[in-house]
Design a protein around this nucleic acid. Sequence first.
DNA 1: GCCGCCGGTGAAAATTTCCTTCACGTCATT
DNA 2: AATGACGTGAAGGAAATTTTCACCGGCGGC
Lengths: 310, 310
Amino acid sequence: MKEIFTGGTGGNGGNGGAPPAPAALAAKVRTLAPSMTRSMQRVAEAVAGDPAGCAALTVTGLAELTGTSEATVVRTARLLGYPGYRDLRLALAGLAAQQQSGRAPAVTADIAVDDPIADVVAKLAYDEQQTLADTAAGLDTAQLGAAVSALAAARRIDIYGVGASALVAQDLAQKLLRIGILAHAMGDPHLSVTNAVLLRSKDVAVAITHSGSTGDVIEPLRVAFEHGATTIAITGRPDGPVSQYADHVLTTSTARESELRPAAMSSRTSQLLVVDCLFVGVAQRTYETAAPALAASYEALAHRHSPRSR
Amino acid sequence: MKEIFTGGTGGNGGNGGAPPAPAALAAKVRTLAPSMTRSMQRVAEAVAGDPAGCAALTVTGLAELTGTSEATVVRTARLLGYPGYRDLRLALAGLAAQQQSGRAPAVTADIAVDDPIADVVAKLAYDEQQTLADTAAGLDTAQLGAAVSALAAARRIDIYGVGASALVAQDLAQKLLRIGILAHAMGDPHLSVTNAVLLRSKDVAVAITHSGSTGDVIEPLRVAFEHGATTIAITGRPDGPVSQYADHVLTTSTARESELRPAAMSSRTSQLLVVDCLFVGVAQRTYETAAPALAASYEALAHRHSPRSR
DNA sequence: GCCGCCGGTGAAAATTTCCTTCACGTCATT
DNA sequence: AATGACGTGAAGGAAATTTTCACCGGCGGC
């Protein structure tokens, strides 16, 4: 076995004084540079200058790059406090990752026309995450709880939404249907109204509108409200007209929009979170029936998927 | 100069030529876990669970730790998108450093039946945020860029999706239509196929399926593919059958699901992010026509939002 | 001025680590 | 029950890393 002796006292067999430095590498290089020979300095310099690049190289590669030999590279690694080149390389990779992630937070800017695609992804993801956090923070859990209760006890549920919100309405309806709750997404304003007339006190109507003032959605909600149904509004403008006819108002967050980033994008994210909360809440309340229903729908789906995928 | 070319010529299929992932490893593990064998899963689990610890291990060590063989470890590394174990280990070190500097990994408890509603909101929001981060990290920007190019230049775009993915398909279609691009969301499998026959080389077909093996969606994509259209798949299982007929595969992340949190929930979040990225990318490329179109659609909507209802 | 010591250096051997091939066991299918 | 496909690990081969060792150039002593 190897018995590298480095004059350190305390340690058991291992390397003496320094534990493998995690990220203070550049500093270490500068500190130790004077005590290095010329070739070693070249290696250390390369390593400190481009951690990511060097991490991709093998001993031989780094030796060639710096015009030195493999032995020198290993010696340098030792001097920097690592057992060998392998470990230096590992630390190097860590360092690279670290300064990569450190660079990340600079994505708060708006999306520009000439942004590279990678930036677009980062910015969109970041924005949507922000939207989620805002929505969660701004949600009134009391209202949410009340809405859940109403939904869980409903005989029939009608959900109104047009445009982008129509998809959210459908999403909610789909989910509720899956756990055996009679929910219908209404896209067509006329149908919505004519159906709203049929709602009674045990029923629930849900209106989804970002602006809070979409006439096509407010109208059926009003009708439902006046017929005694419990009404829920999911809107980004709780002070808008829609709240007038809503027993429970759930507020979605409103992120800033830009030319390339229409409001529909973040409002949808926000609305979907609310819808998910409603769904999970309802599923909890009706767990006895929801659980088998969910299981059954998995089962049914399995048969639509081709036999093998593994 | 190594010339290692893993011989899988049979179908380019498999993983869509992903570059070594930077730090989206946990996500990748979750994405690919289903397509792994038991032993590989053990390895992947160990790796995802303790990146720092595993980075310190050699192939043999990790094999012993997981009670498998070296070959299995290497296979797992390959599956995760690295050329071999060495590179996985490097990435692992990077990940470890990253989550060292960043704060706690933040554990998420599952949603329980008796969670208070406030917890449900918090957990859902957190999970969806996580999903977004994972998706963004795991997205292959090269594939994305290629998909964007295809969409921007398309004469006609058909989008297939059933179930929860149908909503995502509609979302994409809606958005593209708004900037003057002829996109249609196809819900009905029969209609999808009959329309797919009409597609030609300048056209694009998009299939959205979480499982990657939804026959109703694969079939039209296949037809489109065989008729020379450019095909894009948005799926959580890039190794699934759907990729077979896809020129470009965009991978969505797969969060762990639980009884109260069906897969549809996070997959939808993930899919929507991808769709948003596509949309913004296309809007960038076609800015000349997209900008006025977007402005015009705002204008048109404004009239539906009367301060007073109707 | 010549010689020998010595640190610095790299080429090549030695070793570890990693990767590939192949054969065996297991499970599912027919 | 036979067959085939697949997952799995053991052993051998390739590549990496580490160690050894010999060379080179400079410096001081003889």
